[in-house]
Amino acid sequence: MTKPLLDVKDLKIHFPQRKGVIKKRTTYVKAVDGISFTLNEGETLGLVGESGCGKSTTGRGITRLVPVTDGEVRYEGTDIASLSKSELREHRKNMQMVFQDPYASLNPRLTVEDILAEPLKAHGVKGKAERRKQIEKMMDVVGLNRKFISRYAHEFSGGQRQRIGIARALILNPKLIIADEPVAALDVSIQAQILNLLKDLQEEFGLTYLFISHDLSVVRHLCNRVAVMYLGRMAEVGNTDKIFENPLHPYTQTLLSAIPVSNPRHEKERIILQGDVPSPVDPPKGCAFVGRCPKAHDRCHSDRPKLQKMGEDHYVACHLYD
Rank of each mutant, 00 (worst) to 15 (best):
V8F: 04
K285Y: 05
Y152I: 12
N107P: 10
R220P: 10
V277P: 12
H297S: 15
I164Q: 00
E72C: 07
V98L: 10
Q17D: 09
R146G: 03
K133M: 11
D10H: 12
C53S: 15
S105L: 02
A122E: 13
L176R: 08
A296E: 05
L207D: 06
I190C: 11
L210C: 09
F99E: 03
L45D: 03
R151G: 04
S51L: 06
N107M: 09
H123Q: 11
T26H: 01
E245L: 14
R161C: 09
D70W: 03
D282H: 15
N94H: 14
M310Q: 14
M95S: 00
A288I: 09
Q134R: 15
R89N: 11
N224S: 13
V277L: 11
I272G: 11
T27P: 00
L116Q: 02
V21A: 14
I212P: 06
P280G: 10
Y103I: 08
C53H: 08
P260W: 04
R18K: 15
L198S: 01
L186V: 02
M97I: 09
Q17G: 05
Q17S: 14
G42N: 04
L320K: 03
S157A: 10
S189Q: 10
Q202Y: 06
P102K: 00
T2W: 11
R265Q: 15
Y75L: 14
E76K: 12
D298T: 12
R299E: 13
I194G: 01
T208S: 13
C300G: 07
V21W: 14
E87T: 07
V73I: 13
V218D: 00
A185R: 00
I62H: 09
Q202N: 04
L144A: 04
I271W: 06
Q17K: 15
L65I: 08
G49W: 01
E87V: 06
V261K: 14
E236K: 02
L248S: 02
V29W: 05
V281C: 05
F99N: 04
C293E: 00
T57A: 14
T38W: 03
L11V: 03
P67H: 12
G42T: 01
T38C: 12
R146T: 02
K30Q: 11
L5E: 00
Q162S: 05
S56Q: 07
K55Y: 13
N107Q: 11
R25Q: 14
F205T: 07
H154K: 07
K175R: 12
A129Q: 15
M97G: 00
L176Q: 06
K199I: 12
D140R: 03
P4I: 02
Q160G: 09
L144P: 00
P67K: 11
